[in-house]
Design a protein around this nucleic acid. Structure first.
Lengths: 245, 245
DNA sequence: GCGGCCGATTTGTCTATTCATATTCCTGCG
DNA sequence: CGCAGGAATATGAATAGACAAATCGGCCGC
């Protein structure tokens, strides 16, 4: 099976093995693992070695461990990590405001040149079907963020059956699909055309643009373009290295 | 000595002890530590326990370890970590452009209400002397970023003697003072007044505003306001959880 | 004097075992 | 029936010992 790794220590091999099982969904969030001793025996190592692996995965946020309780797969990282504005509903709620989501557009298609340009995607991976979405987040009735998103249906087939007319896709995705890497691009723009109209802003008003591309191992999961009315919104990223939990 | 920590495991105490020595400069970058065995004995623990501590610190980027070579304090984290645009000179160089720094203002003072508002500092820590700086970064001759910065002289006394007329303060600081926590705030603004003039932009042009506050354990180190001409610049933050080195 | 090899040293990894601690579960008493 | 308390159990922490891997240095032969 997972041969093809000639030079690797026991705990490195087991670490990758377990991480993969979590990421590809074989072990769903909430799944309870066997106890240290049994896992150790199953992998042919001592409990100390297995403990090192499990401790590491817990530190990375993949597992939650409780004494006597056992070891569980953690819920997908919501905003545990570092730089996350995945769930705009939660973001608005944290400010103590009411949140609304209005779906403006939904279609299943292949990406054309215009959409690729808008989402800053190169000719890169993926010519298959995508779910293309656009919608408006409102806070306390006022436009808060315009979201334009492509979801790779090859990576997240379940998205095909979601309407996203009541739940924003970001909320659903963070609860559904774990990711392994993300790339955020930030820029200031003067809004134009339809985007200005949706946000109720004059053309040329300063807006914060976030382009995010999320990956899960082999393919990309989703690309999203978020436009925030400039002065009204700010984005805070707190960062403390090496202090995972 | 370091009592005052009633409930703590051995490796947690030692971990904090060593981290402190690195952060407050008692162990300078490049300093060679004693070998595991000796450190273990000095702290009254076994080698396995000390190994756990040193391995952890190496993973956090504080130490560099080489077999047979020994264990060394790492050079201060430049942009090893996650979300770093500390050194604008390096940023510009990475784009293959020439970089220039023009100092516009330099004074040692106490922060007034206007400066606090500009840098988004609350009545928060620090009524002592600060070094207040303003300057312009240029790339290939064109304005690239307007920097306004306060440096806490209580935390970085050496900054008092630096002119910063040739080297930007960000470059110097990242090579001098390690930090433990940072907070970035991002916003889009329409530039006004003097800032527009310095950047050579019309009033109201969209710009990316970054406010960063850096801490090192007890006090704040520096607060900086960076204004980037909007369309011309974008900020990319790549993020991969749990993959430290 | 120079280059290659070999041994000593230091970290890396793993094991077997012991004790500690936090929960859960179950039993028994009111 | 419900709650208190104790036993069982899974993880957490630490130890001593052993071997592997990397590499620094010095020794030896040429």
């Amino acid at each position: 099976m997972t041969s093809a790794r000639p030079q690797a220590t026991h705990h490195a091999r087991i670490l990758e093995d377990l991480r993969r099982r979590i990421l590809d969904g074989r072990w769903a969030p909430g799944h309870q693992l066997d106890k240290e001793i049994d896992l150790a025996e199953a992998h042919g190592v001592s409990r100390m070695t297995m403990n090192k692996v499990l401790t590491q995965l817990a530190q990375e946020g993949y597992l939650v461990r409780r004494r006597r309780g056992g070891t569980f797969v953690a819920q997908p990282r919501a905003q545990s990590a570092v730089m996350e504005i995945n769930d705009i509903g939660a973001e608005v709620a944290a400010l103590g405001l009411t949140h609304d989501w209005t779906l403006l557009r939904r279609e299943i298609t292949r990406l054309g040149a215009a959409e690729r340009a808008l989402l800053d995607m190169p000719a890169d991976a993926g010519t298959g079907d995508v779910l293309f979405l656009q919608g408006l987040h409102s806070a306390q009735g006022a436009p808060f963020c315009l979201e334009t998103r492509a979801i790779n249906l090859a990576a997240v087939p379940a998205a095909r059956d979601m309407a996203f007319d009541a739940t924003p896709p970001g909320t659903w995705l963070t609860q559904t699909k774990p990711w392994t890497a993300a790339r955020n691009t930030l820029r200031a723009i003067g809004v134009e055309g339809a985007e200005a109209r949706h946000l109720g802003l004059p053309v040329g008003a300063a807006c914060l643009l976030i382009l995010r591309k999320t990956r899960s191992e082999p393919d990309w999961v989703t690309c999203v373009r978020l436009v925030y009315p400039g002065e009204a919104h700010q984005l805070v990223a707190e960062f403390e290295p090496g202090r995972a939990s």
